[in-house]
């Protein structure tokens, strides 16, 4: 088994291929890849790829939610869990904060999605600081439990406040106004997909920047040995807090968008299961590896929709896939790349 693994490794294969290309080839490849992904909404109606089509829910909508949203949130959670190694079991809280910010501000103040977006992100970040400052002094299991509690608290608060309209939730959230030639009416789910895709690309760009520079090194050091990291001068609390806050910001942004797409939100959309599912996406794909997380989240979000026609057996198949996966590839589909090559760029 171990032998088999060392013979072929998709991640290393990909990395080596990339390594061997010059700048121009890389740019071309990236653009083509992005272009192909952007064409995904048409896949269901094009003969050769029509097998991708989902029954019951429309394929284009599935691409936005859950697929796109899950990829976005999994990338955000990966900054916390994968990069700095902090187990966050309440990630859905940030998503909820973003969603409620959009719901409340748009229905009461009449602001549009783009005006609310910075606030949704900012509130999620503030929540990250408020949770992080006390919680990040704890480690491991204790941190996991506190974050779990935090996720539940946010939901329960939403369930009980007047401004969030309790269990009924908030209806009548407006769609985003048109921007950059994209028109966000409900007949155009593909436009939402392109928007989410843009946000995903932005987050990936951000993570890649961090990873090869000081923050990435600090997180990596913290993940491997927090005490030694601080003895080598890393301000561990600040960097852990940053990972929390940035992860929260991504969750908040996803929430704002989600609320303006579904137009109605209620507390039961932000249950503990969502946190676990997102965490599942991260683990399934390969903790710490951006591409692993993207692929993992896409599969885990898409699969249940694709097999919806078998109704009840659906969850069973889903569970079986997870178990199979954990046995065959315990580190995820595309495990974390060790930092062997990353320094090359810094060492110019």
């Amino acid at each position: 088994m171990a032998n088999l693994k060392s013979r072929f490794n998709l991640r290393d294969f990909g990395a080596n291929l990339w390594e061997g290309w010059n700048r121009q080839t890389r740019v071309t490849f990236t653009l083509v890849l992005i272009g192909l992904v952007a064409l995904l909404p048409f896949a269901a109606s094009w003969g050769p790829t029509s097998f991708l089509n989902t029954p019951i829910t429309s394929f284009e909508n599935v691409l936005v939610y859950p697929v796109g949203m899950f990829v976005l949130m999994a990338l955000g959670l990966n900054i916390v869990v994968g990069k700095s190694g902090l187990l966050d079991l309440g990630y859905v809280a940030f998503f909820a904060i973003g969603a409620y910010t959009q719901a409340i501000m748009s229905t009461t103040l009449g602001w549009n999605t783009w005006e609310v977006l910075p606030f949704g992100i900012a509130f999620a970040m503030v929540a990250g600081v408020m949770l992080g400052l006390p919680a990040l002094r704890l480690r491991g299991d204790y941190l996991a439990i506190i974050t779990l509690g935090f996720g539940e608290i946010i939901r329960i608060v939403a369930l009980n406040l007047k401004i969030t309209k309790g269990p009924d939730g908030i209806p009548g959230i407006p769609n985003p106004p048109a921007i950059l030639g994209l028109d966000f009416s409900l007949e155009n789910p593909s436009h939402y997909f392109w928007l989410v895709l843009g946000m995903i690309l932005l987050v990936i760009w951000m993570i890649r920047r961090f990873t090869i520079r000081r923050p990435g090194r600090a997180w990596e050091a913290i993940r491997q040995d927090e005490d030694v990291a601080s003895l080598m001068g890393v301000n561990t609390l600040i960097y852990k807090l940053w990972s929390f806050v940035i992860g929260g910001a991504v969750g908040g942004a996803a929430g704002v968008l989600y609320a303006s797409k579904t137009m109605v939100i209620s507390p039961d959309m932000f249950k503990f299961e969502v946190s676990i599912l997102i965490l599942g996406c991260v683990v399934f794909g390969g903790i710490g590896n951006i591409w692993g997380v993207v692929v993992g989240a896409s599969i885990l979000a898409y699969l249940p929709e694709r097999i919806r026609f078998i109704s009840d057996a659906r969850q069973l198949v889903f569970g079986a896939v997870l178990i199979l996966m954990m046995n065959l590839r315990p580190d995820g589909l595309l495990p974390r790349k060790k930092r062997e090559k990353l320094t090359k760029r810094g060492s110019l």
Binding site: R217, E220, A221, Q224, D225, V228, A229, K338, R339, E340, L342, T343, S347
Partner: peptide
């Protein structure tokens, strides 16, 4: 050491 990082890192 940070075992999973390169010597340089």
């Amino acid at each position: 050491l940070f075992g999973e990082m390169t010597a340089l890192d």
